[in-house]
């Protein structure tokens, strides 16, 4: 992997040069949340943001979008072709996109997702965990691939990792703005990473979870959470790895319609409803449990469907904490050893 250094004084010029590649989006503060928005001036951005409420998934599968339009009796595909640079993406979110790729780019691939992935550049940025982050426990705290460039904060600029052919091209075209990193820069990079790794406050032994879930299906812990949880679906709506969507046709005139897709949540009553009126997740307990099985259990070989970004905790009105639920499940009746101690046991 190629490393370069972007000195602080060149940041603005470098950022401006990205406009050649597409419309640039970055994290901005809006009220008390962060959001990826179109950026005109780099000073609008909050580069030391914790996490955006809606993850960058929104660029590839939009929260709500028209996917087809019924015109003269024919369904016509709708897809914006805007070229985009998504600037300032954290490692957890880059890893989350790789999880989504497995779903949306496997046969049969989602044409909209594919086109938008091809039309977008991802520029990562280093971050400091807050009390909700637990990506370190899931191995998603560092992005090995899935980005074009990755900027690591230095006292006087950024160390830039190149992750793709396009990334190399950007580096080449902006070469006057970049320098070769020296020993001191690499030392600062290591120091930052050290400090970062030591800052994590939440931890999870991901190794044991799949086994635990086998035993925890009837745990009383689910009953406790059924009472606390509102079934509002906020945890799903903000999750960077949730993949469920709902499709619905809306009439715009008696003979014209649009097919709209939107994020869905397995907390909704009809999510498990099938033909004949059967519902395989009829109660809130079933639905609460399902989310945890979806995130941490199904096909553990393929990796977890959680990157530890902390969004579900931050935006749960009931204050339910993802890792705490997993711990309680692990400590539940059928299993008495806490996850962390299992390692040495």
């Amino acid at each position: 992997m190629r490393y370069s250094k972007l000195p602080k004084e060149n940041f603005e010029a470098f950022f401006k040069s990205l406009e050649k590649w597409g419309a640039v989006y970055g994290p901005v503060k809006r009220g008390r949340i962060y959001s990826f928005e179109k950026i005109k001036d780099p000073n609008e951005m909050s580069l030391n943001y914790t996490r955006t409420m809606i993850p960058p998934k929104k660029f590839f599968v939009k929260p709500r979008e028209r996917i087809l339009r019924l015109k003269d009796g024919e369904w016509v595909e709708e897809c914006d072709e805007e070229k985009k640079v998504i600037f300032g993406v954290h490692s957890c979110d880059i890893n989350a996109l790789l999880i989504l790729d497995k779903v949306y780019l496997s046969y049969p691939e989602d044409p909209l997702y594919k086109r938008r992935r091809e039309n977008s550049l991802i520029i990562g940025i280093s971050c400091m965990p807050d009390e909700l982050c637990f990506c370190k426990s899931l191995g998603t705290d560092f992005a090995m691939h899935g980005f074009d460039l990755f900027l690591h904060e230095l006292p006087d600029g950024w160390l830039v990792r190149t992750g793709s052919v396009k990334g190399h091209e950007i580096i080449w075209r902006s070469r006057e703005l970049l320098q070769e990193p020296n020993e001191a820069d690499l030392e600062n990079f290591r120091k930052f990473e050290d400090r970062r790794i030591k800052s994590f406050k939440k931890e999870l032994d991901a190794q044991g979870i799949a086994d635990l879930f086998d035993l925890a299906y009837n745990s009383d812990v689910w009953k406790k959470y059924e009472e606390l949880c509102l079934g509002c679906g906020n945890c799903n709506m903000v999750c960077p790895t949730c993949r469920c969507y709902e499709v619905c046709d809306l009439w715009t005139s008696p003979y014209e319609a649009e097919r709209v897709r939107r994020y869905d949540s397995c907390f909704m009553e009809t999510h498990g409803l099938v033909a004949g009126g059967h519902n395989f997740r009829a109660t809130r307990l079933d639905r609460f449990r399902n989310r945890y099985y979806c995130k941490s259990y199904f096909d553990p070989q393929a990796g977890f469907n959680c990157v530890g970004c902390g969004r579900c905790d931050e935006f749960c009105p009931a204050g339910i904490e993802h890792v705490k639920v997993l711990y309680e499940i692990a400590r539940g009746r059928s299993y008495n050893v806490p996850i962390l101690q299992r390692k040495s046991a």
Partner: peptide, 18 residues
């Protein structure tokens, strides 16, 4: 089948409760 929260999030509105 969904509560107002779902549409609130689809619009990226700040959650006033939280």
């Amino acid at each position: 089948d969904y509560p107002v929260c779902v549409e609130c999030k689809l619009n990226e509105y700040e959650c006033v409760l939280v």
